[in-house]
Design a protein around this nucleic acid. Structure first.
Lengths: 202, 202
DNA sequence: TCATAAACTGAATGGATATTCATAATATAG
DNA sequence: CTATATTATGAATATCCATTCAGTTTATGA
């Protein structure tokens, strides 16, 4: 893991201060975006002085990278836990897709903050999606060997599946379109496409 | 259309200046992002004085909106032209998907600049994807009536299809993963999924 | 050629903001 | 209780940058 030069607090009160800065930043980065959020905004919301920020974080960008790393781990962990509970590939795929969308709905900050990496440090963005893809490919290759899925190009398929999940997640988070109340319905639509396709043969 | 208070140049030389500012901004917004690009950067690259910028654009944000609007129209027009040439829904879908990806590869700035609207003005982002979705839904509903596609939820399907196209496009533009040389192969993988699905029935 | 609108210049302005620093308060080990 | 590492403060600093403006140049129609 990259060293961000973040100083961990030692005493109980300081741990609380650290968390307050963290959560204030998450909220503000989500609401206003990274560039429009100032250190002053963050410390004010956290209820501490501006200087306090620099006791823990060497810079604004280090804080951003720290939060991005938190989210990367959390979402992966959450999906892995849900997927682990089921057996075959179909059930795993459904569980993974639903886990992503429900997690995104509960933590809308995550989505925005991860995507914003593209405009903060492109390497972070590339790294995030490539490593997500690699995980996906591993699962798909295993399923291919077991004859659970068709002999597709798993790398392309990983981006197809990430695209589906991310955009349906986006619809839910940003409330795009008319109806975003029923996540299970959306997951069903996705699984139906993955099962029988979209087109009717002539 | 929203009025951006952009002053169109009248003489030949000035039209050239205007274009230089436009294209410098497109390059820089792509390379550095909106917030990290200064008016000084833009005017320097365009080869004019800082004040010249304000002869044509009332503000930095107005320039961004102007460019976003250019891209919105161009990509839609490009896709519409390609789609118009073919008849049934399958061919239309293939043409549309391929048109998006090839256009994105040729104009990688477009992708970044459209997405960045999320961090500049969320309403622009919402508007962009919702109107894109509505166009998609219209096409899908027509195909449904004709019995060309299955009776899916077309709104959800529009986001599924946008997600697929956007993420495969992303892979190509950002060179994610190992192989991005063969766009036709990727489009085939997508069309195959849309035809017969991913899973093998037991 | 001349008058004038259009185009252009670049230094100056004003406001914002990331980061530093000298100082003070506080928790805890011994 | 005391010494000390830790935590906290917030005003000051230094830089950056969008925008303005007073003055200059240039194209073009008459």
């Amino acid at each position: 893991m990259l060293d961000l030069n973040i100083k961990e607090p030692k005493r109980r009160n300081a741990k609380h201060t650290f968390k307050m800065i963290e959560s204030a930043a998450i909220t503000l980065f989500y609401e206003r975006g990274y560039h429009k959020t100032t250190i002053g905004d963050i410390t004010k919301k956290a209820g501490v002085a501006a200087g306090t920020f620099y006791l823990y974080f060497p810079s604004k960008i280090a804080l951003y990278k720290h939060i991005l790393s938190l989210f990367s781990h959390n979402i992966r962990k959450h999906i892995a836990e849900e997927v682990a509970e089921v057996k075959d590939r179909y059930a795993k795929e459904r569980a993974g897709i639903k886990a992503f969308i429900t997690y995104a709905k509960k933590n809308p900050e995550m989505y925005n903050i991860i995507w914003e990496s593209l405009y903060i440090d492109r390497a972070l963005f590339k790294d995030y999606y490539e490593s997500f893809s690699i995980r996906y490919v591993n699962g798909l290759e295993a399923a291919k060997k077991k004859g659970e899925i068709k002999p597709v190009d798993t790398e392309v398929m990983s981006f197809i599946l990430m695209g589906i999940t991310n955009f349906v997640g986006l619809k839910v988070i940003m409330d795009l379109g008319t109806d975003n109340s029923d996540i299970d319905h959306m997951v069903d639509e996705i699984m139906n496409l993955l099962s029988v396709g979209l087109f009717i043969e002539k």
